[in-house]
């Protein structure tokens, strides 16, 4: 792939860090203590937040970029990469996070969107971005804007894996379909999914996203982690699933083990067996008011 990243930083340096995170778990943390627990459990990166998604969901109100002192304290504590979230379209929050020196920015639907029409033009930044997607068109629009990693949106803070499964399956199926199309069909496919034509052509040729493809939004158990890897995720983000469980250190370790050994049921069993505590409480996504869904934020 040619480097079509920002005018400053080649795209492969941005996707390169995502490559280094493959097979690992990125954990949401809100304090220095949690960040340490995550690192000690084997997280390959942490996402520094003010509140985990299930609390954002419960508390309501406007969710913004985390307080700088929290992010800074976490950056000063762990040696693994530190990510932070900005609101959809809030390029000024993103500039602040880049200035602070975080390793990755998540332009995230978990926070309250700042712009209902436009996402951040991520090509303008040296720091790499990850964005959520529910389908291939959405994923390729974000890549077109410069995202260097895609994750499923799932339904953050729900403790329910069903939406992440839907989104991963939807993306994988659409990619398989593209690989079977004749070249004359690709422009119409690009029009129908609202995705840049050149990226559609690239996926049709390779059967893969042009950037790493991770899972997020609802992973709460070791088996959930194994499921998402089995469906084609290259790594897992775990938000509320660890620090809203009743034994975070054990859940963290078990989910890391199940992500690495996702295709070995014996290892996933052993990981699950170490847990004798409750997983985070789950929500039936079908019973949520559509206005409460986080995944419909962004386009």
């Amino acid at each position: 792939m040619t480097d079509n990243g920002s005018q400053h930083t080649p795209l492969r340096l941005k996707t390169g860090l995502a490559e280094m995170l493959k097979g690992g778990v990125i954990m949401d943390v809100t304090t220095v203590e949690q960040a340490k627990i995550a690192e000690d459990a084997g997280a390959c990166a942490v996402m520094a937040l003010e509140r985990v998604p299930s609390d954002i969901r419960k508390d309501g109100g406007v969710a913004r970029m985390a307080r700088i002192d929290i992010i800074e304290a976490i950056m000063g504590t762990v040696t693994i990469p530190v990510m932070a979230k900005c609101r959809i379209g809030h390029f000024a929050e993103a500039r602040v996070l880049q200035q602070l020196g975080v390793d990755y920015i998540d332009e995230s639907e978990v926070l309250t969107p700042a712009d209902e029409a436009y996402h951040v033009n991520k090509h303008d930044f040296d720091v790499p971005f990850v964005c959520g997607a529910r389908n291939l068109g959405e994923a390729l629009r974000r890549v077109g804007e410069g995202a260097a990693m895609i994750r499923t949106k799932g339904e953050a803070g729900s403790g329910n894996i069903v939406e992440a499964v839907r989104h991963m399956r939807t993306v994988q199926k659409a990619m398989r379909e593209l690989t079977l199309m004749g070249s004359e069909e690709l422009m119409t496919a690009a029009k129908d999914m609202g995705a840049p034509f050149e990226l559609v052509r690239m996926v049709a040729a390779t059967g893969k996203l042009p950037v790493p493809n991770f899972a997020a939004g609802g992973i709460a158990t070791p088996a959930d982690a194994s499921l998402m890897m089995s469906l084609g995720a290259e790594a897992n983000f775990v938000g509320s699933g660890i620090f809203k469980s009743s034994d975070p250190a054990k859940f963290a370790t078990a989910i890391v083990t199940a992500t690495t050994h996702w295709d070995d049921p014996q290892r996933v069993l052993e990981a699950a067996r170490t847990i004798s505590a409750e997983a985070m409480p789950g929500l039936d996504v079908a019973k949520l008011d559509p206005a409460e869904l986080l995944q419909t934020r962004g386009w």
């Binding site: 280094m20 690192e39 390959c44 040696t79 693994i80 990469p81 690495t260």
Partner: peptide, 11 residues
Amino acid sequence: PGGESTTMLLF
């Protein structure tokens, strides 16, 4: 390979 050495070391 490349990755996070702390994570690999734990494993």
